[in-house]
Design a protein around this nucleic acid. Structure first.
Lengths: 193, 193
DNA sequence: GAATATACGGAGGCTCCCTCCGCTTTTCAA
DNA sequence: TTGAAAAGCGGAGGGAGCCTCCGTATATTC
């Protein structure tokens, strides 16, 4: 089922692997063109694969989104660690948040992926949200421990705030606006409790 | 066409008026139950009216949303004036933002209406967004003029921020969380200019 | 009591979603 | 090499929603 836990001995079928790859490639294209809510039928068509195959590999829209954007999420997580090494706590946090905005601006569809990850009932999305909150929590805690930021905002809160702000998407000039708004927000976190 | 500009002399047909009313009532129910994206077919069915009639009265989903929530928007606008009379600038602003959260919490569907108003290309939504930004602009300017808040955030920005934050909807305990986040944001606005 | 402007209804054509199951391909063991 | 069984494939099919179009019905007006 695409999910090859080393349970049974058989190795995954070659056609299965190939099709999964095709689907991911097609999905990336379709999502980046058609935004969230793009047709899954269209993805299957583009991948030259039956719709049933799509659903077998990715039972839900979320699952497909997550698979498509997993690479990006991983990179964000890695970036958090790098920034922690090279910057002061609050600065590192700001940088990371900006990198997120940048990414959303670049990879269309990324925002939808994040939104799904952040808004849906747990368990289902799992990977992305966990990965990102962990990374963000790391940066946030550093700044809280030094006493530079107030302690009553969680990584989840901040991540959702970021995503919420990015929803001003499509508006002209949104990128600089959102950056400014995030800065305001971080200033608010810094204002003594 | 529901839009009776005193152009022609004929008075609007009684069945038209009745159906419009029915549709609004049905839509309020359906939207509050099914959230945004609820079926318009279902609205028509509930109103005991042909689907064509629905589309004739409200050519787009947005139009219907706006009509359904117009009353609430008007009340928010009125509230802004009342608060301005009775509270200090920043306090009035906070109160108003909280009232918004409260309203979103109460009237399900309201959030979707606001989001549509705030995210879509101008002209189309018109009424709600204009009304709200005007009200909010009024409160915001008072606080800026007294030098209590920085001047580089527009009413539109703030409104979109509010809506974006409310998107953490459905999450348990969202209401108090969003209230806290809004407070953080206002603190950020207050932090030195 | 016409005449006519206005509104009504819902069928029809399209797209999308997702499930289900008969058929094909691949793997693996003998 | 081979053939049985596991694994995967495809797409038809049923359901739902969207929106348009137009023949029919009815309110208003004179």
């Amino acid at each position: 089922m695409g999910d090859h836990t080393a349970k049974t001995s058989r190795k995954p079928r070659s056609d299965s692997v190939r099709n999964r790859e095709r689907l991911l490639k097609a999905a990336a294209k379709i999502f980046s063109a058609g935004g969230p809510g793009a047709s899954l039928d269209a993805v299957a068509r583009r991948a030259d694969v039956g719709i049933g195959t799509l659903y077998r590999h990715f039972p839900t829209r979320e699952a497909l989104f997550e698979a498509v954007y997993r690479r990006e999420v991983d990179e964000l997580a890695a970036l958090a660690e790098k920034l922690a090494e090279n910057c002061a706590p609050v600065e590192a946090l700001r940088q990371w948040l900006r990198a997120n905005i940048q990414l959303v601006a670049t990879k269309k569809g990324m925002l939808a992926a994040l939104a799904l990850a952040a808004h849906k009932p747990p368990d289902l999305y799992a990977y992305s949200f966990a990965r990102l909150t962990k990374a963000l929590g790391f940066l946030l805690n550093r700044a809280i421990e030094t006493g530079e930021l107030r302690a009553d905002v969680t990584p989840e809160d901040l991540l959702r705030t970021l995503i919420g702000l990015c929803y001003s998407y499509d508006q002209p000039g949104w990128q600089s606006t959102v950056t400014r708004l995030i800065d305001v927000f971080v200033d608010g976190l810094a204002a003594r409790g």
